[in-house]
Nucleic acid binder design. Structure first.
Lengths: 347, 347
DNA sequence: CTGAAAGCGCTTACAG
DNA sequence: CTGAAAGCGCTTACAG
């Protein structure tokens, strides 16, 4: 005999009130097929009994599990908490739960993670793909958050525009030689940001790009980036493609006696947790994770409603790129040292 | 009529093979009530058809959803990714999925988040409580990860011992005046770490504690911590209670021209993502998140098996505290400047 | 407005 | 070793 849940179910409520389960179900779901009077009575009684509907029963009957999956193949990415939070927020606002899955930085198992979610009956999933991975259609609708230039992307921050905003900011401050500092040239996101920066340079400005992974392959992990030397070569701005690289750049410059921002400006991307906390606080570009999450979830749910949850489609959205916003803090300032006195500096 | 899943189900497999659903079920679950020959044939056919068992059907029948909840009331805590990853790893190794829930830093809604998970039918949950929140029993088994000194804690890193390890390290390096830098005096974890540090000081050593939130309430958020002045007062070691505070301390010292580690040592806690990346890399104390996750999940599952998943119990474990490990990097060095030459420094 | 009944997909005693 | 049947809790056409 199947095990009975200890909690009350529709049948218990029904018999104790002398009505049918159908009526209880209709009353609680508020479909309006029950007289208001009776409905209120049923609702009250259910609440009193501490009734919690069985998702399993409902899912089996309706074919809808009420659960979405979130695949984060690189959970160690410090952007993750904000995005996960935003996704969870948007999903639960729509009445959905969120199952997480990650592939722990290994190579193959993105597919495995996806399969685990399918087995758990998710109606759709949001995937933040690992570097340049193409998502082959899974057995359910999929919303991809990567970068607008990735084919199949559903929604993402406009990383190019973010880069442009940084370049514009640096140009306004009078910088002419910009060192772009990225981690990995294989990242679509980082490449788009770098392109954006280059596209925003004005006549007379120039940039060079330094990829940390490439450098570390030669000099060993944790090696110096040689930024002090770059300052002496005439670089005055260090535009990092993530706050993590900005942090590395800033601490290296400071350690080597280069004062930021009076001798060199440092900027980042993403407004990660430490950016407002460090000294000097970091000028950066933030993505609107809530807008992105909202668009991803609503497009996903729309696809599920129109096409069902068993067809492997890449979800599209009307707004596929969300503006990034420049956050001016204290790590960037005028390039010309004679103007330093005009710059507000933290004491 | 209830909607049919597009995918194959047991019945489809059964009829197409001319056997009963019971036999298919037994064969696929490997309970051994079917001849090996037939079982193999069924398994092969099921795989060929791309059969995915319906969790909803199984859950309804067995009363077990195969899902656990993870409640992170402060998802912005940068420790989150590591812990979430470890929990997800341990849970999925045991065949469970993980639903996340967070309360977005608001005050009341820890309970609301917990209820959402209950409604989704989790068999149990892991809760990392917000600051000093006491978890009142939910409607299912609960494993709490906080600090061993919290009543009801299931498992946690031994934060006191971690503090002791830091103090011991600083003592070995010859430091005598230690400034402990914490964020919030209301955090159990931070308090235990501070106690641990104090307990490890040797005769002749002294410490003062600086709580950043308290200071910022007076001087405004983002204010200077005045660490350079502390150096001139004779403090040589800045023992932060989290890597985030260590980062703030380090950058402030560097900005004010104090070289680390030759003029002052800085240490942290948690080995967060940036700790090995900054210059100088950060000496810190790491918790073994995988051990903690493993213990939390296994205790939780054991309780679920013995007492069911509908009783609100606080799970206990045999090992309630996991040792923390000192990671010596370059931000800490000898207190006595004359000995600096003996210290290996990164160039 | 209310109720009786079917059925989603599964597992498990029970019978053969 | 294999099968027929019951039933987990729910929702929804259908009948009254």
């Amino acid at each position: 005999m199947p095990p009975t849940r200890p909690g009350p179910n529709l049948s218990r409520i029904a018999t104790s009130l002398g009505v049918s389960v159908a009526t209880v179900s209709n009353a609680l779901s508020g479909k309006g097929r029950v007289s208001e009077q009776l409905a209120d009575k049923i609702k009250e009684h259910a609440a009193q009994l501490g009734y919690v509907p069985s998702q399993a029963g409902r899912a089996l009957r309706t074919g809808r599990s009420g659960v979405l999956g979130l695949v984060l193949p690189d959970i160690a990415n410090p952007l993750f908490p904000k995005l996960a939070q935003a996704i969870e927020f948007a999903a639960s606002a729509a009445g959905y739960g969120v199952l997480i899955a990650d592939s722990r930085g290994e190579v193959a198992p993105q597919t495995e993670a996806i399969n685990r979610l399918i087995e758990r009956g998710v109606e759709g999933m949001v995937i933040v793909p690992r570097r340049a991975t193409r998502i082959s259609a899974a057995a359910c609708p999929v919303a991809v958050i990567d970068t607008p230039s990735t084919p199949g992307n559903t929604v993402a921050a406009d990383h190019m525009q973010g880069g442009w905003a940084i370049a514009n900011h640096l140009a306004d401050l009078g910088h002419r030689r910009v060192l772009i500092i990225g981690n990995n040239p294989g990242s679509n996101v980082q490449n788009d940001r770098a392109c954006g920066i280059r596209s925003g340079l004005r006549p007379g400005m120039s940039s060079t790009t330094l990829w940390i992974e490439t450098l570390e392959r030669q000099n060993g992990s944790g090696c110096s980036l040689g930024l002090a030397a770059k300052v002496h070569e005439g670089y005055t701005a260090f535009a990092s493609l993530s706050d993590l690289q900005a942090l590395r750049a800033l601490t290296e410059l400071q350690r080597d006696g280069i004062h930021v921002p009076s001798m060199a400006s440092v900027t980042g991307f993403d407004d990660l947790i430490w950016s407002p906390v460090i000294t000097p606080s970091l000028t950066t570009v933030a993505m609107d994770v809530h807008a992105i999450a909202r668009i991803a979830i609503s497009s996903l749910l729309q696809t599920i409603q129109t096409r069902g949850s068993r067809e492997g489609v890449l979800v599209t959205s009307e707004t596929d790129r969300v503006q990034m916003q420049l956050i001016m803090r204290q790590s960037s300032g005028p390039a010309d040292p004679t103007r330093i006195s005009r710059q507000t500096e933290n004491s």
